[in-house]
Amino acid sequence: MKKILLILAFLCCVITNSKAQVVGVDVGDIAPEIDLPNVKGENVSLSSLRGSLVLIDFWASWCGPCIKEQPLLLKLHNAYPDKLSIYGISMDTKKPLWTAAIAKGKLPWINVSDLKYWQSPAVADYKLQSVPLNFLVDKNGIILAKNIHGKALEDKVKSLLEVQ
């Protein structure tokens, strides 16, 4: 009888664990925490943005497709200022290049970087292989979509925010 109870308890744990949400980078996972300094050197954590839809945007000043997408991000930021937060993570290694790109693009959202390029913990946590890369995260920190750009990103954000 003890063996049967032990086996049942084990199976219960396995079933419960397999349905638990995990931290990861797949749709449905909890987005890994990021806590990096902004241009003023003050750390800003991703979790501080909970409560709104968040676009995590990995980019760099030298990345043409990243810069090309900034007008769309600006449009989304301006269309949903109280509902959408953008958390830009720069892969630049030189602060003057990073801050100049922010100024030139007039990027009003949170921009962070540890200026470590591929050695950043965020790179490993998000399995970054190239930029641009983004993750759309709901108000509870759950990844809703990843690596969507252009019209697909615009449509997804619109569908999520205009229903609320």
Rank of each mutant, 00 (worst) to 15 (best):
Lys3Ser: 10
Ile7Asp: 09
Ile7Gln: 07
Leu8Arg: 11
Leu8Pro: 08
Leu8Trp: 12
Phe10Val: 15
Cys12Phe: 14
Thr16Ile: 15
Ser18Pro: 08
Lys19His: 14
Val22Asp: 11
Val23Ala: 03
Val27Met: 03
Gly28His: 03
Asp29Met: 04
Leu46Gln: 04
Leu49Asp: 04
Arg50Asn: 14
Arg50Met: 11
Ser52Glu: 13
Ser52Gln: 15
Leu55Pro: 15
Ile56Trp: 13
Asp57Lys: 03
Phe58Thr: 06
Ala60Arg: 00
Gly64Asn: 10
Gly64Val: 13
Ile67Ala: 02
Gln70Trp: 12
Leu73Asp: 02
Ala79Glu: 13
Tyr80Ala: 05
Pro81Val: 03
Pro81Glu: 00
Asp82Cys: 05
Leu84Trp: 10
Gly88Met: 09
Ile89Lys: 11
Ser90Cys: 13
Lys94Ser: 07
Lys95Thr: 09
Leu97His: 06
Leu97Val: 01
Trp98Arg: 00
Trp98Gln: 00
Ala100Val: 07
Ala100Gln: 15
Lys104His: 09
Gly105Cys: 08
Lys106Tyr: 03
Asn111Met: 13
Val112Met: 06
Ser113Pro: 04
Lys116Pro: 13
Trp118Ser: 14
Gln119Gly: 11
Ser120Asn: 12
Pro121Arg: 03
Gln129Ser: 15
Val131Asn: 10
Pro132Asn: 02
Leu133Cys: 14
Phe135Ile: 09
Val137Pro: 00
Val137His: 14
Gly141Ala: 08
Ile143Ser: 10
Ala145Cys: 00
Ile148Thr: 01
Gly150Arg: 07
Ala152Asp: 12
Leu153Phe: 05
Asp155Ala: 05
Lys156Ala: 11
Val157Asn: 02
Lys158Leu: 01
Leu160Glu: 05
